[in-house]
Design a binder for these strands. Structure first.
Length: 210
DNA sequence: CTCCCGATAT
DNA sequence: ATATCAGGAG
């Protein structure tokens, strides 16, 4: 089975297994989703949601983050890990948003990735999820691992993997494919002990057992 | 390539 | 003990 056929089959079974797949971060505005996604680096959604539940009311909008006391914000973001880096990113991103985009989250990937702390993965999450725009395919550690094991790509850099996936998956499915594949990677095709017995594509996966 | 950071799984 | 986790910057 060639990669294109495999991708089509995988997509079909993802639809059955995760019909309502979406990002599990809590947000009420595109700006909040942008902040939450930055905080989600190397951190579970659950912990991010716990933090943003108090942080979003406390800092409503980019102006509040830009003007916030850095030490206080660091303390608020500490549970998400990498807190100094993330505080710097969120404040610099908020200032750039105010300076360059009138405080509004831009709707193109080229504009989004100019923001500090924002690269393709974060930009795709915001565009796919908040604006329903198929700007690209979210490639995080899960999507990368699943795609490699299934044989959809042989690349290792996220950007190269995304290029391969965009050729294999129809554009109207991009916003579903990313979040659904993340769930598959998170719960079945796990990094350490993948649950191959329960896998929806075990019949076509080159990786048997292990 | 290294660093940032802490919680959890193995 | 150590690998890994909804990454990105320098």
């Amino acid at each position: 089975m060639n990669p294109a056929e495999k991708a089509a089959l995988f997509l079909e079974r993802l639809r059955e297994a995760h019909p309502d797949a979406r990002y599990e971060l809590n947000w009420s505005t595109p700006f909040e989703l942008l902040v939450a996604t930055i905080l989600a680096a190397q951190c579970t959604d659950e912990r991010v949601n716990r933090v943003t539940a108090t942080v979003f009311p406390k800092y409503p909008g980019p102006r509040a983050f830009a003007d916030a006391d850095t030490a206080a914000l660091e303390e608020d973001l500490k549970p998400t890990g990498f807190f100094k880096q993330k505080t710097k990113s969120v404040q610099a991103m908020s200032r750039a948003l105010l300076d360059k985009f009138g405080g509004e989250v831009p709707r193109t990937i080229d504009e989004l990735v100019t923001l500090p702390g924002v690269a393709r993965k974060t930009a795709n999450v915001v565009l796919n999820t908040a604006f329903n725009l198929p700007s690209g395919i979210i490639v995080d550690t899960h999507v990368a691992r699943v795609s490699q094991r299934l044989g959809l790509t042989k690349k290792d850099k996220p950007e190269a993997i995304e290029e391969d996936l965009m050729k294999l998956v129809p554009q109207e499915q991009w916003t579903f494919f990313g979040p659904a594949t993340v769930l598959h990677g998170r719960y079945t095709c796990t990094a350490k002990k993948p649950k191959c017995d329960d896998c929806i594509v075990k019949d076509v996966c080159p990786r048997i057992g292990v």
